[in-house]
Design a protein around this nucleic acid. Structure first.
Lengths: 140, 140
DNA sequence: CTTGGTGCAAATGATTTGCAAGCCT
DNA sequence: AGGCTTGCAAATCATTTGCACCAAG
């Protein structure tokens, strides 16, 4: 999935937030990262593009972008929050307990079941955050 | 669900960790709490039983108990971790975005689907942590 | 212009840790 | 006895905030 430079600007404008070079940089860092970076990682990557971006700005940008549903926050039980571009298709995260690897599980079926169950309780789901701690099955 | 006093001791012994009055107190506080308390809440409740329990001990006890799978940690995106006795039946958590209320959704069907999907990817699920941000549906 | 955004450094909140003393096995 | 636990206070880690300046609409 690639983004055109002005595609990023549109995302910001559409969300009604100002377009700044720092936000562009943060988004660019996230777009290129497929490893669910922490705020610190994002800052490090953003700095390779613009040495002057501060930590505070990265945190503020991430918070703003999460609010705008452009970015998604993933909290693993311990350790800092991780971030990724908001997925078009919702998915769960599998964290391999042996090596810390994070992979994604997208299932239409799972999403449908979840909303059905929530609806039965009288709720609509705004967003979800699901982390499964897993271990590789033995090869037989 | 009630626990006998010595049932708690057995849980600790079975997990191979020492039985201390502080750990008993922490567990007792959790058993009586059905509101997913934070570490601070647990500390406050524990102190009503034993004024001398320290914050550090509560944190250490909770960490130990989570390791031993006696207690489960629930992390909501912002704000401190919350805790509950490890459920016999796994469930998801619904967080009402309007009032912060946390309720539980237990579904055999959901659990089954999740493990099936994980298995298809070659993984077994050790535990899961799923938080749905929800809003009450309008009454029609 | 005017409001929102930024950098810096200091502040905060949650959780962890070093150390000396105490309790469990 | 010997090691795991505790309490206390200080330390750490992630994240947030106050403030003066700058930039976007």
């Amino acid at each position: 999935m690639t983004y055109q430079p002005d595609e990023i600007d549109s995302m910001l404008r559409d969300a009604g937030i100002r377009v700044t070079s720092q936000r562009r940089t943060v988004i660019a860092a996230l777009v290129q990262s497929h490893d669910h970076p922490t705020a610190e990682d994002v800052h490090a990557r953003a700095k390779t593009v613009d040495r002057s971006v501060s930590f505070a700005t990265v945190y503020r940008a991430l918070a703003t972008l999460v609010d705008a549903a452009i970015v998604q926050r993933i909290s693993v039980d311990d350790g800092p929050s991780r971030f990724e571009m908001a997925p078009k298709t919702e998915h769960d995260h599998l964290v391999d307990v042996d090596n810390g690897e994070v992979l994604e599980l997208a299932s239409e079926e799972l999403a449908a079941l979840r909303s059905r169950l929530a609806a039965e309780l009288g709720y609509e789901i705004l967003s979800h955050h699901s982390v499964l701690r897993v271990r590789k099955l033995q090869k037989l």
